[in-house]
Structure formats: C-alpha cells, structure tokens
Design a protein around this nucleic acid. Structure first.
Lengths: 362, 362
DNA sequence: GTGAAAGCGCTAACAA
DNA sequence: TTGTTAGCGCTTTCAC
C-alpha cells in the first residue's frame, strides 16, 4: 500500500493558486486511490499484461473517478511517441479559403485520426517561413509526423523531412520511396472527361490551371495533352492570371478556338461560369466548363458545374493508415485510391454549331 | 566545463536504431557544445537575465548548429504551460464544409497564434462525443486552452471548461464572466440592413436560419424582430428545413408576403438565389436576399449576394489576445470587435410594384 | 502479479 | 554569472 503517496506533493500548490485551477490528478493520486503503485497504473494504461483483472478494474475506476488520463506530455517525454499530425499549408489565407478541398481534407482527416488517438495541428505559412516551421515543429517535437500537401516540383520538404527523420505522408504523386504517398488515380479521369466532351462534339479543349509550380498541376498538363492528342483532339494549356484586370476575359481570349475548358479549381470554374456570360459567352451553350475538383460549390452556381470528384475522404483515411504504419515502424508503401468520378451537371453541353468548320454538324 | 556530458547517454541508442532516426539533440548536447551547463541553456531559452551576452550568443549558435529547440513536451512536464489551442467543432463534416466562416476563422487564427508560439489543434466531433473530447484533450493536457464556437443555449461547455479549469475564449455573445467572449457588434447591422431594405421599399421581411439551437441564432431572431417592429416593418422568422424535399421552395412558401429574406448563412443564401428563379421567383426583381455572413462565395453566384461581412480575422486576433491574457493570469475581459458591414451587391433591389397594395409605388 | 528505481528532456530554486 | 540539484508525470526495466 502506498500510504506515503495518499497525499501527493501537490496540496501545497493548490493552496497557493486555490480557486482557479482544479489541480489535475496525477498517476500517483490514481495509484493511491486504487491502493497500488504508480507503475501498476501505468501498466494498465499501456496494455501490459502483468496486472490482474481485478486490480486493473480497480485502477480503471479510480482513474475515471479522478477524471485522470495519462498526461500526454509526460508520456512523450518518457518515450512513448506522441500523437500529433502536423499539417502546414503554404498558402495565403485567401487561396486557402477559396479551396473547398481543404475543408473536405480537414473534415476527412479528423475522424480517422481521432480513431487512433491522434490530433491534427494545422497552420498556414508564407512560403518564406515554410522550412522554418517544419523544422521548428519537429525540433520542438510539437508534432510527430507531417502530412504534405500541395507538393511542388523539387519540393524541398521531401528532403527536409528525410533529414529531420520525420515520418511524413504525401498527398499526390509519389516522389520518394521514403515518403509514402496517397495518389488519386487520374488516368481514367482524362479518358472520362475527353470521352464526355468528344461525345458532345468538342475537339479543341483548354486546360486552365492557376498553380504552375505544383507537381500535380504539371502532371495534369502533360497527361491532359497526351490523352487529348491520342484522341486527335486539340489541347491547349493556359495559366490563370489572378493579377489580370479581368482573369476570365483573359482566359477566354487566350483559349482561342477551344469550345471546352477543363479548369483546375472550382473557384476558377465558378468564376468563369458566372462571369463569361457577362462577357457575351454563354455557358454551356457556347462554352463547356469542367472543374477538376468537386464540392458543394459546384452545385451553387448556375449552370451547376460538371466536375471531377476526388475521393478526398478516402485519401484522408488512407493517409492516416500510412501514417500509422510509419510510426509503428512497419513498411508503408504508397497507395492509390479510387479514381476521380466525373459528375455530369449542366456546365457541359453539345459544342455550338461550328460556323467556320463545315465538315462537322451539331 | 561539462566533460562528462560531452558524450550524452544517447549514443548507445542511436546505434541500435541507426539509419532511421537522426537522434535529436538534447539540451545536454547543446550545453556541452557551448561548454556550459544545461541550465545555462535553459536560462537563455527562457529569457532569464542571468547569462552574459557572450555566453548567450555562444549557446544560441550551438543550439542553431545542432538545430535544437526546447522539447515542447519536456517543457510542459517541467512546468512551463503548453501552447496549444484546442478548437473542437461540433458539426458534421457536411455542415462544416459548407461554412466558409470556418476557413476564415482558421486562417485568421493561425497567424496571431504563431506569433505567440501557439499552435492550433482542430477536430470535428459529433455532439454525442463533444463532452468527452473536451475532457480528454484537457486531462491528457493535449491542449492548454479552448476556443468555443457555435455556442448554444445553456451550452454545457461553459460549465465544463469551468469545472476543468481550462482557459477558454468564446466566439459570440458573452454568457459567463469566467469565459471571456469576442463579440461582433451586431446592433448596427440590423439597422443597416433594415435601412437598406426600407430605402428599397421593403416592408415585410423574413429571417431564415438553420441552427435554432445556437445562441447567436436566437439572439438574431429576437433582435431582428425588435428592430423591424420598431421601424413598423413586418418581420417573420423561418427555419430552414434541410430535410425538406425542396428546402428553397419550402422557405418561399412559408415566407408569405415577405419581399426580402435575411438569411443566416451564405450556403442557404446561395441556394435560394440559384434555385428560386427555377421556381419562378426572380432575385432580386421579385425577392431580395441578404446573407448574414460574407466570403468569396457571395461573389460567385449571380446575382452576387448582398451580405453582412463580419470581421472574422479581427475576431480571431482578439480571441488570441484574450487567450494570451488568460494563460498569463491577467484579467481578460470580453471584447467587442468592429461591427458587421453591409456589402451591397446585386441580390437586393427595389421591391416589386405591389399589386394588392395601392398606396405604395415602385 | 506487483513495486522500486532509474530515466526521459527540461525548468527553476538555490548555491557557489 | 554560472552550475548543482531536485523535481515535473509518466514509462519501463528488473527485482521481488
């Protein structure tokens, strides 16, 4: 019995700062209450088999009565890995806010993380602070793994997490064996989109993107062009210029003969759909628009946006699974999740009757 | 000098698990490298004045060279309060995703938090798990304060954080002296909205909300009715029924003679604006719509939504300031931030020429 | 099946 | 100004 511990050292403390802080129970208090040693309590809460069922039960109820749970920080200090996933988003508040993808991601991450006792630490940084923040979070051991999103060409973070020895999972195309990735299978998406557009008579198609530095954006450019050419279609690739006076007008001007636009983000797609008619281009009658992401936003505008829905929640779940393997020291290999699905709504339609090109008909 | 520590206990360990983990430097290693005692290092990193400038510099560079920063967990264990703010959102992924407010909040929180060395832990929970999650996060000491949003009538969390002794800041109307609140000054907003509508000839106005349990929703109901009646207008209050077959049709039906709708969320407003025309009600010609929140979404739809913009970023900053005072043991008193601003766009217009009411004219 | 004791990395009185 | 020392709350060998 632990008579000496019945009265842990705390009380003096709770005298001084009395009213405010309901002094937190410690493992010693729980042990005392259950009439066992602190280590017995620890054993129970760490799934060690060396405590009798009866004692374990007694310990558990003592802990419950005191509302005690193992102190996360102490636990970390004494060797049990922590359970906090860092998500550092290198975007301005503005572009972050406009991307419903992040809401879906956060919402999707939260549940599987909770299921394994992890929490999510989230921050937005300017690109100049990115490296510093990863380094600081890791060296302070504020987080125990990273989730990498918006991966760029030659992304320095890949090297950095390797250097740091930080477990990391990447959302996007795999770039390094040491950082397992969750990839959305996109091949079928190109075919599906082009098939859909071809069936509607489209032959000239522009892809519009706004994040030229991102790996996935480059990849999409390349594969879009390939897939379109394979079908004998005429692809072009355009960059959205947010700084242009009228980005929509700018894109329309540069899209030339294209009768359909495959647009990277919903925000852009929605803007085009809303603004193009004001510039005299009706959607979908004169121009079809497809978004390469989907969320509630796609159903807000009229016409509703035909969109490629990615399995964000599935990606999140898979990323968490990889994370778990990683921190357990198991082999974690990159995963591919379900393909994007084309959701046909009203922003795509049959190509307008071609004036200059007499060998096709509407 | 710390010859004995030059070679901290670690090495054996880094032998066993060699390749993977670049063993993290400890305070001892830094001290050794700088030729001082660990406490000297600690002093420097905790802003104690009792280290000479020269030594401090030496210590700092040693730390830099080793990429060392004080271990967050150890620090917590040894008494320095932690620096992690918990944001527990009791919403389904779905309603969370559809509320751009949260994106703005998260983006707004992130910067001032980083400035004081805090990070944000975020999770979504079902209401049945809410109490448990707060309790667990607190008793595990995963977080060191809470930010309370979506406060409901008789919100149990107010009592709970008080019981737990957890510092908490609330977003919304103050409900308890112990939990300082950040409130958006709304009085002017009612006046501004009603003034705007009155000037356009509107007399019958419906308020539409979808979260009847939230304190702020109730408050708005009450004050909207008061303010409207004070002006001799005819207010009604409607609840949006997401489960209705066609929620928009449902609202339009129940809004009776109202010629203007004051809608709690952008998601609802956007849906009404998109769908009402399909039901034969043109916006704004036959019906004016105002949203009680603003974000990029309001400019996506046509007509663009006339909206009340809340100073979300300012609220976030203020909340962080209160939080800081709270954890420093200073007195933290509830704050009011700037008023909502009415941003007039195209979803409000002059009331349609009244057929049944001959004493007004368009 | 259970407890004593050492230690995790750090902070903070207190000495020197 | 600097270092010694004793914790913080927990985990984990290793005796009992």
């Amino acid at each position: 019995m632990y008579a000496a511990l019945q009265d842990p050292v705390k009380p003096l403390l709770s005298d001084t700062m009395n009213d405010k802080k309901p002094a937190r129970a410690t493992i010693a208090a729980v042990a005392a209450r259950a009439g066992v040693s602190p280590s017995a309590v620890s054993h129970v809460f760490n799934g060690r088999p060396n405590v009798s069922a009866a004692t374990a039960a007694r310990i558990r109820s003592a802990a419950d009565e005191l509302h005690w749970r193992p102190n996360y920080a102490s636990r970390k200090v004494s060797g049990r890995g922590g359970r906090s996933l860092g998500l550092v988003v290198t975007r301005s508040g503005d572009t972050f806010e406009r991307d419903p993808f992040f809401m879906r991601l956060i919402a999707g991450l939260t549940e599987p993380l909770a299921a394994i006792g992890w929490s999510l630490s989230l921050t937005l940084v300017r690109d100049t602070d990115e490296e510093r923040v990863y380094r600081e979070w890791w060296s302070e051991q504020r987080v125990d793994a990273f989730l990498l999103v918006d991966v760029r060409d030659d992304d320095p973070r890949i090297l950095q997490v390797r250097e740091l020895g930080a477990p990391a999972v990447l959302l996007g195309a795999p770039v390094d064996d040491l950082v397992p990735a969750v990839t959305v299978h996109d091949d079928a998406a190109y075919e599906e989109v082009l098939e859909h557009l071809a069936a509607l008579g489209h032959r000239a198609i522009s892809r519009v993107s706004d994040s030229p530095g991102l790996v996935h954006s480059r990849e999409r450019d390349r594969r879009f062009v390939e897939a379109a050419e394979r079908r004998g279609m005429t692809p072009t690739v355009l960059h959205w210029e947010p700084s242009a006076e009228d980005p929509v007008a700018d894109v329309l001007r540069r899209s030339g003969a294209a009768t359909a636009l495959l647009v990277d983000s919903e925000a852009m797609a929605a803007e085009i759909i809303a603004h193009a008619p004001e510039l005299g281009v009706r959607v979908p009658e004169q121009l079809s628009v497809i978004a390469w992401e989907d969320s509630w936003v796609s159903t807000l505008v009229r016409p509703r946006i035909t969109a490629l829905d990615a399995p964000v929640e599935e990606s999140a779940r898979t990323a968490v699974k990889l994370l778990e393997q990683l921190v357990n020291g198991e082999r974690a290999v990159s995963q591919t999740v379900s393909a994007r699905r084309l959701i046909v709504r009203e922003s795509t339609a049959r190509v307008p009757a071609p004036a200059p090109d007499p060998d096709r008909e509407g």
